[in-house]
Design a protein around this nucleic acid. Structure first.
Lengths: 144, 144
DNA sequence: CAAATATAATTGATATATCAAATAAATAAA
DNA sequence: TTTATTTATTTGATATATCAATTATATTTG
C-alpha cells in the first residue's frame, strides 16, 4: 500500500491556508482593517498583558522583528498603547485601547463560528488524534 | 470532556512552521541560496513544464503576484530560463537551466530524509487518518 | 565597582503575501 | 471584423518573514 507521506505537508499547508482565507473573509463581514494574525496578537496581549514581545512572538510563531512591526502598526491603528516599563526599560508596557478591546469583542463570535464550521462533523476523538499526530511530527523534528 | 478545538489550528501552524525551519536548515547543509518554496516551484516546473504560472501558484497555494516575483528571482539566480511562448503570447515558456536541475538533484535526498525524520514512528494508518481529517476541515471550509 | 556578557527590542535588506489595478493578448459576441 | 469580454501576467502599495546587525538596558563576573 502506498504511503501518502509525500503529500502530508501539502495537506497541512492547504488546510492552514484555507482556514486563513476563510477567517479573513468572515472578519471582513464584521470589522475591517484587521488581519487574522493581528487579531491573534491583540488577543494574547489582552489575555496575558505581562508577556514580552519576544514571548508573544514565540507563541504566534513569528520573528521578533515581525512582532515589532506588527505592534507598531497596531499602535498606529489605535488598537494598542505602548509605554515605557519602569521595571525594565528595555521592555515596553503594551496594552489594548478601548478600540482594541472592542474589536476583540466583535470578533469573538466570528472566531467561534469559524471553528464550529471548520470542525463540523468531526468527532472529539478525531481532533485529539489529529493533534497527537501533529505533536509527534513536531517532536520528531525537534529531536536535533 | 474538553474539546481541544480552540487550539487545533495552533498545532497545525506549529507543525508547518517547524517543518519549514527544519527543511531550511537541512537545505543549507547541501546548497545555499534557495528557499523551501523556491525549491517547490522549481520542482513543479521541472516535473510539469506545461503548467502556467497561475496553475503553479494554485498548486503551491500562492498568489499570482507572488509567483511572478519568485520566478523573476529564480531567473535572476540562474535557475530558470524564461522565453516567449509563441502558442500564447500572454504566457511564457519557462524551463530549468542545468543549474536549476542540478540543485533539484542535490536536494532530492535531503527532502527524502526530511520526510523520513518527520514521520518516524508514525504508522501509515495514522498518516492516512491525518490527511483525511485535514481534508474534512478543508471541505467544511469550502462549503460556501 | 568596571568590564564583559546577556537580554529586549529595533532597524536594515531582501523576499514573499495580499489585494487592487493595469497590460497585453486571446476569445467570444454583435 | 470590430467591439466586448476573458485570460495570463505584471505592477504598485502595504504588511509580514527572515536573517544579520545595532541599540539600549540589565545582569553577571572579575
Amino acid at each position: 500500500m502506498k504511503v501518502p507521506a509525500k503529500t502530508v505537508f501539502y495537506h497541512i499547508e492547504r488546510t492552514i491556508k484555507t482556514y486563513r482565507k476563510f477567517s479573513r473573509q468572515n472578519f471582513l463581514k464584521v470589522v475591517d482593517d484587521i488581519t487574522v494574525d493581528q487579531k491573534l496578537v491583540l488577543q494574547y496581549l489582552n489575555d496575558r498583558p505581562e508577556l514580552s514581545q519576544n514571548e508573544i512572538a514565540e507563541l504566534v510563531f513569528k520573528d521578533n522583528a515581525s512582532l515589532t512591526r506588527m505592534i507598531d502598526l497596531l499602535v498606529r491603528k489605535g488598537f494598542l498603547d505602548r509605554s515605557i516599563n519602569p521595571k525594565d526599560r528595555r521592555r515596553f508596557h503594551i496594552e489594548l485601547t478601548p478600540k482594541g478591546k472592542e474589536i476583540l469583542e466583535k470578533l469573538a463570535p466570528v472566531i467561534a463560528e469559524n471553528r464550529k464550521r471548520a470542525f463540523a462533523g468531526i468527532s472529539e476523538e478525531e481532533l485529539v488524534q489529529l493533534e497527537q499526530t501533529l505533536n509527534k511530527i513536531v517532536s520528531n523534528l525537534n529531536k536535533a
